[in-house]
């Protein structure tokens, strides 16, 4: 992650003053990463879109609480990860994730399907879906968004050892899930 971009801070300050154009620019900058995170966490294009909208509305409402001495990306991912975990808890599936992972929708329409077609995407998403929520969140932050351990600590409010342990376990679980998929194909 790079240092705080100047443009980003200007946009944040303008948004706090009520400039909707500035907020629109922030949405354009972050819609890809936030949608991507929601998709990885919720496994569903419709839920991911809905979640991304809600996350940006929360961001707009709470932007005055953002501490400008911290990285903006860390703050918005913190809002997004809290929202995704809450949403997963509210719609807790009645079947174990292990079972759900291999029954993910494969013929859902939508623009992201066009860009995400292919065996690689399905394999990765199925492996990711086998992880418990808190492990999945940390794996997504690390491997999709390239956050450092320290940034993941700030986003998730976990200790360094907890982040390391969860990532280590996530990697093991991902490897096991990939082995299982390889074995079953």
């Amino acid at each position: 992650m790079t240092d705080q971009p100047m443009e980003e801070m200007t946009l944040v300050r303008a948004t706090i003053k009520g400039d909707q154009q500035a907020f629109q620019r922030l949405v354009e900058l972050y819609q890809g990463p936030i949608y991507n995170m929601a998709y990885r966490m919720l496994h569903n294009a419709h839920d991911a879109e809905d979640a991304a909208q809600e996350i940006f509305l929360r961001m707009y409402t709470k932007i005055e609480t953002y501490d400008q001495s911290r990285k903006f990306s860390t703050w918005i991912f913190s809002v997004a990860s809290n929202y995704c975990i809450d949403r997963i808890r509210r719609r807790r599936p009645l079947v174990p994730l292990d079972d759900m992972a291999f029954a993910l929708p494969s013929n859902e329409d939508g623009p992201e399907r066009l860009a995400l077609r292919g065996e690689l995407r399905d394999t990765v998403q199925r492996a990711l879906a086998t992880l418990p929520d808190h492990y999945r969140l940390i794996a997504v932050l690390r491997y999709w968004h390239d956050f450092s351990y320290q940034e993941i600590e700030e986003i998730t409010k976990l200790s360094e050892s907890a982040v390391k342990t969860r990532l280590h376990r996530a990697r093991k679980m991902i490897a096991q899930a990939l082995d299982k998929q390889g074995g079953s194909e």
Partner: peptide, 23 residues
């Protein structure tokens, strides 16, 4: 320790009208 497939995993693309819906 990281499975090769997770070295640079593919990203999802947001729908084109997402910004408009939020705004």
């Amino acid at each position: 320790e990281l499975p090769a497939i997770f070295v640079a995993p593919p990203s999802a693309i947001p729908p084109p009208n997402l910004t408009a819906k939020i705004m």
